[in-house]
Design a protein around this nucleic acid. Structure first.
Lengths: 362, 362
DNA sequence: GGTTAGCACTCACCACCATAGAGTGCTAAC
DNA sequence: GTTAGCACTCTATGGTGGTGAGTGCTAACC
């Protein structure tokens, strides 16, 4: 039931928007319902508390605010936060001093390694006092750069796949018959030739053809050929799994920051937040959505479908090169979050990651 | 202040021990202070509640039990749990059906991969309804099995180290001058020759000698030699770091199980448990102690020094081959834990991991 | 028309008290 | 050494009244 639009063409006049903004900013710092008087005192609104009350009632009618109970102040709803967030697009970037410090820290760290993503997560956590999240950049369809086989013992070998972006997959292969390092090296060389530059599907078809040739009496010894097909099959399967996996890993840091927020003083809420963070499947889906969309997104409270996440918000930004490899960085905090600061910080870090990733494709 | 030892030579007579055991077992299931009457009703003690009360008072004087307040039942102290744990050495292994199921699950999983340790952690978590922990087996001094270099772009290469046990280390190397894959392959081959089978220290001295030879006019082109020394140095450093790291990774699962325990209903306690689990440094130290000692150990409440951990207990068991590679599996739960079950389960899983690891050295 | 002072009303919060019940410690009898 | 019995202690529960914050509404004001 929409009601009395007033004074301006939009559903919400300018003053109402300013007051909504004030309520949110006050609530973000105080964590307590905001009264009309507090708004008049702390924000130069130039009207009396009675007038503010009228506007607050209006904002509540539109669904942007609520009331815990009759004699309490106002609290923003998810819709209120949403409206607010839409109005701040860019956010507040960290001050230049901090930007330099962060750049410096990234310079200190092993390039493109796990440490990189841990650092991104912990930087975000530190700057926003929320939980920081970071996922490695992942290509859409992995391409093989190098195949290697190392004998662990005569029935067990370690298969090493280097992908185009430098990531590595390793797995153990049980050998059907005792095989020494020399034989393995030969097989690895064949596979390296065969697979270099290919995706899972391309390698799959090429192996298929090879198998046909072999059946009609190819050049190779049958035992060698069997091994090539065996290991090749494993490679294809591993790559397919990797491609299918939404997001390989979500590094997180600073969960304790979130848990210290007063809204999680009741232990069941605390538990739910924790469960939300553990639920990597869902987190992965959000992350994927952001990676696909290619723009910074904010998920607020109930917009994050699972029940555990209704009291938290996420700010996620993609980085990397669309079509080649994309990762996501972001923060997770209580819905009562300093959005401009969070958005600005996440954008800055994603920009930084962007620059850094470029070198991988230079 | 020790007091009135009675009836038997030891500080605690047989009946007192039985009652202590009963208190603990009752408390473990009920999570509430145990009254003298509950003990008489549920455990066939053959005496009246008044007699039990006398014994309880005695046990309290010895420090094995406490009182939350005058009119409450008894609760075991850490010392009480300790005495109890000392008396159950072996613990209760899982029933054969479950043992078979677990073995089967391990069979389904990628050999010696990350999944292995995740599975160990989640199996332990599931069986004990606590948090499960597992660390990969880590050698005392890593030995190189294989060195490889893959060009990412002309100024950036991926350095791949395969260690003797099949674990892999990967790092990025910035190249001082543009270098193509062919040159890299040559350098990698030289390093592979040079480093195979060596530890960090051994490789370090060998590189030192090489540098001397080169200074006095060696066979190689100086640019090649520089690169070999550069990359060689990185290898030595990486290996040293790896050796120094107490424990590479602690996989954990089922933290939510622990958080659901009623003793963590207050959110600050919950937070502390969570902080304890996050504090990998300390967990690492305990794990290392167990790896060194080579036997299953139980850490109870205050015995786990940091303040966050005073309300949790750990059961940790080593696996692997002493002197070659050792890892640790275990569980973390509230001090009010079903110790016999936890100990038995942890021992079973560590035994299983032992068997599995043996294949790596077969 | 919008704005504002004033006031009645609502409701969470707190302190206070009384009661009930659980479980002990002690004493005296067995 | 054991036990029945009882006084005692302390928590937990629920009800009560007062306080204060903050609203919503009305009527006057500009």
């Amino acid at each position: 039931m929409a009601r009395r639009p007033r004074r301006s063409s939009g559903p919400l006049d300018f003053r109402a928007q300013a007051i909504l903004r004030a309520v949110i900013e006050e609530y973000v710092t105080s964590a307590a319902p905001v009264s009309s008087q507090a708004l008049v005192e702390r924000y130069g609104l130039g009207v009396s508390s009675a007038t503010v009350r009228n506007v607050l009632a209006e904002l509540e009618a539109f669904g942007y605010l609520t009331h815990p109970h009759t004699s309490a102040g106002r609290v923003p709803t998810d819709a209120g936060y949403r409206l607010y967030v839409e109005s701040i697009a860019e956010g507040e970037s960290p001050p230049p001093v901090e930007q330099r410090m962060i750049r410096h820290q990234f310079g200190q760290v092993e390039y493109a390694s796990e440490h990189w993503f841990r650092l991104a997560a912990s930087t975000l956590a530190g700057l926003t006092r929320s939980a920081g999240l970071a996922t490695p950049a992942k290509p859409e369809a992995a391409r093989i750069r190098r195949v290697d086989l190392v004998a662990i013992n005569e029935r067990l070998a370690s298969l090493i796949l280097v992908l185009r972006e430098g990531t590595i997959k390793q797995l153990m292969v049980n050998l059907p018959a005792p095989t020494d390092q020399a034989d393995l090296a030969a097989i690895a060389a064949r596979l390296d030739d065969l697979a270099a530059g290919l995706t899972a599907d391309e390698l799959g078809t090429r192996l298929g053809r090879l198998a046909e040739d072999a059946a009609s009496g190819g050049a190779d010894e049958p035992r060698t050929m069997d091994l090539i097909l065996l290991v090749g099959g494993r490679i294809v399967r591993t790559l397919r799994e990797f491609d299918a996996a939404v997001i390989e890993d979500v590094f997180s840091d600073g969960l304790l920051n979130v848990m210290e927020a007063p809204e999680f003083a009741q232990s069941d809420k605390l538990r739910r937040v924790f469960a939300a963070l553990e639920n990597r499947a869902y987190l992965g889906r959000l992350v994927e959505a952001v990676a696909r969309a290619g723009v910074t997104q904010v998920f607020i409270g109930h917009e994050n479908l699972p029940a555990e996440m209704t009291e938290v918000s996420l700010v996620l930004a993609p980085y990397g090169q669309p079509g080649r490899a994309v990762g996501v960085v972001g923060v997770l905090g209580p819905t009562r979050m300093a959005y401009p600061h969070a958005i600005g910080t996440v954008r800055f870090v994603s920009g930084l990651m962007n620059e850094l990733v470029e070198h991988l494709y230079a």
